[in-house]
Amino acid sequence: MSKQYAIVTKALTKRFGHFTATDAITFEVEQGEIFGFLGANGAGKTTAMRMLCGLLTPTSGEATIAGYDIYKQTEQVKKRIGYMSQKFSLYEDLTVKENIRFYAGIYGLSNQQIKEKTAELLRKLQMEKEGGQLVSSLPLGWKQKLSFSIAVIHDPSIVFLDEPTGGVDPITRRQFWDLIYEAADRGVTIFVTTHYMDEAEYCNRISIMVDGKIKALDTPRKLKEQFNADSMNDVFLQLARAKS
């Protein structure tokens, strides 16, 4: 039953002292879906994502990733997920190739695989010439694309992206989404948090979190119908205002 679902959560909760960051959230993400995870700052989306990645232990509730329990089968879970955080996550003092080799290496790829992956990745990003350069010398947009490509280098079944396009110009953002679509076409499930409402439109389905709870979850089109809104921005504002 849960096999076709990439992520299943049931009443997943995280409390920090008296503060409830995520309050009994329940949702499913299908395999190969691009799932947008929206919410204002402090709404609990990063906490939820960190629990799913194994960076935080939930206070209560259940969750499975690719069919594996996040409490008991952490090793299995870790092998099947990729993660790209808000903070830029490559080593600036390593070259492009060294970064690729390192991350592929810690996921246990063989030397032969690493070689092939590196060539393929550099070709796809049109960075063959920059392979030997230090990452610190690359423009931000390139770094982010590289970062994403490295996050999926071990062919995970799910990749978690935590506000991956912060501070990038619209054109680079568009290119970044091309990479996401391409990965989704290969069957990779994309779980992405974002601030940008135009990006929300790119997702297959989105959930909107307010104060630790999921207030809405559907396709962008249906959400707009439901809230009688022109854009995702309106939907979001309606939900966010409702609380205050």
């Binding site: 960076l55 996550s89 490559l90 080593y91 810690i106």
Partner: peptide
């Protein structure tokens, strides 16, 4: 500080 620690903790290491 760089945020790479998170990536490492998410990895199977």
């Amino acid at each position: 500080e760089l945020g790479t620690m998170e990536i490492l903790l998410v990895s199977p290491l």
